[in-house]
Amino acid sequence: MQRLASLKFTLASLAGLIIWLGLGVALGQSKLLTASFVEMNSQLIRDWLLGPAWSQPLAPLWFLLLCVGVGVMLLNLGACTITRLLPRLRSGNALKGWLLTLVHLVMLVVLLGHGAEMVLGHKQEGLSLLPGQETTLPNGLTLKLEELSFVGDPSALNLPYRRARWVWTTGGFQREGNQIRLKASRQGRELWRGQLRILEPATVAGLRLTLTDFFAPEGEGQPPVGVKLALVRNPLTTLFFVAYGLWALLYALLAVVTWRGGPVRQSTEKV
């Protein structure tokens, strides 16, 4: 247990994760993982791992080893909490001890919430709909795009993110005017009908409907503009956000307490 809780082990697990994430950054930028990242983002990681992931095995292998790295770090975090942080609460600077312990424990909640986001609920990004078109989700919910209002030049749609920033300026993109009317029903019974704009999602039957983008369909006879939607349901999102906000706050408090505490013995220092 002592060895598992040692700072050398902490540093080794952090170094391993840093190297592994660095590899992910490099692979992502060199396009080796780009297609897999798109798939990972469009659905729950659980569904991705049980389905399309293995057509490009590099991505799931990288991801699973990342999970192993996080698991090792969590093991160290647990051991460290039991053998170092909790005993420290009864000695020395009690407030700092509590804050240090809480920072570590809340980080655990953040990681659990983040992990749950990958396996619980439902996620579907990039669902394309044209005006008048409808689609039925696996849970039986039917979405129909009843109306679409787009103020602007559709030929400037479909630009990549970085180029779009130069075109869709405050004056060039009418966020208030660009909107859709969507109807959600189940077995013919209307559950919800309302407007969606970018940055203004709605929640229907526990599912968050988000209008993420407008696009110009390719091909003859198509309407000039369609929309992309994201449909996400996660029971632990609120917990994640509350824990994350608390985590930032605890770090700020720890900084204040450390600052007020003055010089700290270097040999026992651990922030």
Binding site: N41, L199, P201, V232, F241
Partner: peptide, 13 residues
């Protein structure tokens, strides 16, 4: 990102 794209996290570099 959550308000804009539906989810707070994104797998990218």
């Amino acid at each position: 990102r959550m308000q804009w794209l539906g989810d707070y996290w994104c797998w990218n570099a």
